[in-house]
């Protein structure tokens, strides 16, 4: 389970941020997850619910996921296209000289704390 490791890693990061900000309870975490980040939101939520209840700071914390669409840029014709639909080969000009512009990220965007 790929997602479980990612959840552990997020928990470690959030715990660090909480410590730096002298927070002892986090209510929610917002993530930005790319379409081709290899992270499946549904699994991530399952692992999240299981793992946060085993921590002090994040017990019961909500997970919000914003999906980032994957976009590929073509070096051949300088255009972009949706990665998930067309893959590696540019649908505009057929070039293979393409690279991912966005969509492989998994970012902890913000954490929510009640005052």
């Amino acid at each position: 389970m790929h997602e479980l490791g990612i959840v552990f890693s997020i928990i470690r990061d959030v715990e660090e941020v909480a410590k730096e900000n002298r927070i002892d309870k986090v209510d929610g975490v917002r993530l930005r997850v790319g379409e081709v980040s290899t992270v499946i939101p549904y699994y991530l939520e399952d692992c999240w619910n299981w793992a946060v209840d085993r921590t002090d700071i994040l017990k019961g914390a909500a997970l919000h996921i914003d999906t980032v669409p994957a976009v590929t840029f073509c070096g051949g014709c300088q255009k972009t296209y949706p990665t998930v639909t067309y893959g590696k080969i540019c649908p505009h000009c057929g070039s293979e000289d393409t690279w991912l512009q966005q969509g492989d990220e998994c970012v902890i965007q913000e954490i929510e704390v009640s005052e």
Binding site: I6, S9, I10, R12, D13, V14, V17, N21, I23, D27, G28, L31, E105, C106, V107, I108, Q109, E110, I111, E112, V113, S114, E115
Partner: peptide, 15 residues
């Protein structure tokens, strides 16, 4: 409850 938002913007993979 008032909710305070702390911006993190930390990449899980980069971390």
């Amino acid at each position: 409850k008032d909710v305070r938002i702390i911006e993190v913007k930390r990449s899980v993979f980069a971390s």
